[in-house]
Design a protein around this nucleic acid. Structure first.
Lengths: 217, 217
DNA sequence: CCTACCGATCGGTAGG
DNA sequence: CCTACCGATCGGTAGG
């Protein structure tokens, strides 16, 4: 179960037609999480925001620019909801677990109607070369590298054994988080998240040094 | 690295315009693995098979029927390439590992241009209710249930400890296989598969009973 | 930010 | 399996 229930991170100042770019992008992220960034058409987004097609279009200039702006916006949302809050936890295993817990909560909370934005979009664009794929791939790399670094810091703190491989564990944690999100979206079974949490916990326990206390997940 | 390199499972009898339904579906699976089942348009498939749009259309009757037929065809391909060959291995841990190895090899071999068909399509349709999603979800369930059963058989054979949870491990293995496929498609880094194999091995070793010999992965 | 419009392509049909 | 066609929607533009 999610430990937080925050949903609106933007106050949504919809002043009768005077839509801010942020509000448009919030709608764009929601639509794209369901229909993908290709299925996110100018027409559907215009209808959802109650702008004219060309009025909406003028904000971005091309569909690709709209896609890039949407990915950037989703990147900011994820960063704010998952990484920033977890940085309050002290460096080491506690911070690593805080990020992993926030990640799983974020996915389970269904910030967007189609679940995790990047789970959908990274698969949609993995075979479509271009600027959008490049931005998505770079974003996924940044997050995996962050996890790698957090595992390394838990090693430096002496909480994880020197035999723990940060890259290996980061790969596994990303796979488990995405796997939980995917299975949940497909089957609507919350046990997916329970199983991902358990897998991560058991995996970390293999490398935990004697006497290390375990933060909740 | 893949242990097999079989690619053509159908002899492709393209007799100048006299395309068989199988050859059409092979092309459909390939296109869908790249552009998704929505991006698989009647026009693009007609062009790829060098049929007229309406000639192609007549084979299926509607786009949804084309999508369903394509999913069914991909299901058969996966079953033939992953599960059937692995059934030659003796029941127990050997058979479980044979299936997992075949699964990862299948993804790494890139049977279709966009990689694993179901990795793409299961994410594409997880938020689109309807017959196509239902078929995709049922297919993924069947395979996960098969893995669950194979873990159970390895327990019955005394090769895995009674503390091993078949559902839990099946969830993890599916997540790792899909995660490896996704990371490979996004970054074209074969180490994704190395890491998935290592994760599965280490996870199985936790539950292996003393004296159990490990099949290669 | 709007109305009005463009050529191309979408899924699908008529008729053979 | 084809040609010829349908209304709807696509991304995008002109002009204001």
């Amino acid at each position: 179960m999610p430990t937080t229930t925050t949903k609106a991170l933007v106050p949504l100042p919809i002043g009768k037609g005077a839509l801010t770019r942020q509000a448009i992008l919030l709608e764009a992220m929601d639509l794209a999480s369901v229909s993908g960034l290709e299925g996110l058409t100018i027409g559907s987004l215009a209808e959802a925001t109650r702008l004219s097609k060309s009025g909406l279009f003028a904000h971005f200039g091309s569909k690709e620019e709209l896609q890039l702006a949407t990915v950037q916006a989703a990147r900011t949302v994820f960063q704010e909801q998952v990484f920033i809050p977890a940085l309050k936890a002290p460096r080491g295993l506690k911070r690593l677990c805080a990020v992993l817990a926030a990640w799983l909560d974020y996915a389970e909370r269904e910030m967007f109607r189609g679940g995790c934005f990047f789970a959908s979009v990274s698969v949609e664009f993995d075979s479509r070369p271009g600027p959008v794929k490049d931005l998505v791939a770079a974003t996924m790399s940044v997050w995996r590298d962050s996890l790698t670094r957090l595992v390394g810091e838990a090693k430096e703190a002496g909480e994880l054994s020197r035999s723990a491989d940060p890259e290996q564990l980061a790969f596994e944690f990303v796979a488990l988080a995405l796997g939980a999100n995917g299975a949940f979206q497909l089957h609507r079974d919350h046990r997916s998240f329970t199983m991902a949490r358990r897998a991560i916990k058991e995996r970390l326990k293999v490398f935990a040094t004697p006497g290390t206390r375990f933060p909740p997940l």
